[in-house]
Design a protein around this nucleic acid. Structure first.
Lengths: 138, 138
DNA sequence: GCTTGACTTAGAGTGTGCTCTAACCCTTAG
DNA sequence: CTAAGGGTTAGAGCACACTCTAAGTCAAGC
């Protein structure tokens, strides 16, 4: 029941490399993983759940330092739920800001694409109009 | 009319540092800027418009290498509108994917925050329920 | 005429997050 | 018995995007 996975299997399951998994453990993003009698890592379901969540934090741009704090809190003060929630909520705000900026910038890029499309339309006309105002911006 | 700005003024206007402005020029993200008779850079309105757009590309994660390509195309083949549009559309797709992933991951973080809130509620009850199933996940 | 301050350059240094290497240890198959 | 194929470690190396430094030029104000 309590099947523990090898580092290879975890790498496949999480999309991280074995290098990265060991690196995260060294950095204390992951608590020391249980070893088999060979000294090889054996990851529990709990470990994997945590790795999957930490990957989401990384993918939303949380720096490794801050994940360290969160992970340490999780291990050393499992009852300090509020402290962990506060970290997450502060990060949440950053992600939302990031999303908004991304949207705004995407809109500008979209405009430019539309602008280019208009120019292309114009150029492909049978009787192109020279000095079209559309040719101004780059 | 044709007021040209100093590097300081451009730094303020764009939010980039003077270091970064010079670095971008060295990397060919920005065409060589016109100099006054002192050798100091004088940025035209056109330069600033480009810097503002390139900043949007950077902020959406376009690598400097790719902006180089776009910028080179812009300078060397101003008529190659389609080629530039294709670069932008390919980038646009990446940004959209990025946005989706970000949203998904944000949702997971939101769940976790909600989960923590539920635990906090639970703990603050007058008659706390021991071993609540809510305490399982971390 | 000298100091101050903004500019110039080439090139070195930094921070972040991996990514890889070298040397070694086990276990298993031939 | 030995070679292949997985794992281990500490630590070096790399990619990216800045960021800073040192040494110099120039113009204006005191």
């Amino acid at each position: 029941m309590e099947q523990e996975l090898t580092i290879q299997q975890v790498a496949e399951a999480t999309g991280l490399s074995t290098h990265t998994l060991r690196y995260y453990e060294r950095c204390d993003l992951i608590a020391p993983i249980h070893r088999d009698n060979n000294g090889h890592r054996r990851y529990s379901a709990r470990d994997i759940a945590w790795i999957q969540f930490l990957t989401k934090l990384r993918m939303t741009g949380m720096p490794i330092r801050q994940i360290q704090q969160y992970a340490t809190l999780l291990r050393q003060q499992p009852d300090a739920v509020q402290a962990r929630r506060e970290i997450l909520e502060s990060h949440r705000q950053k992600v939302i800001t990031q999303l908004q900026k991304l949207q705004e910038n995407l809109t500008v890029i979209d405009w430019k694409i539309q602008h280019y499309k208009a120019i292309e339309e114009n150029l492909s006309q049978t009787f192109p109009q020279p000095n079209s105002p559309l040719l101004k911006g780059n």
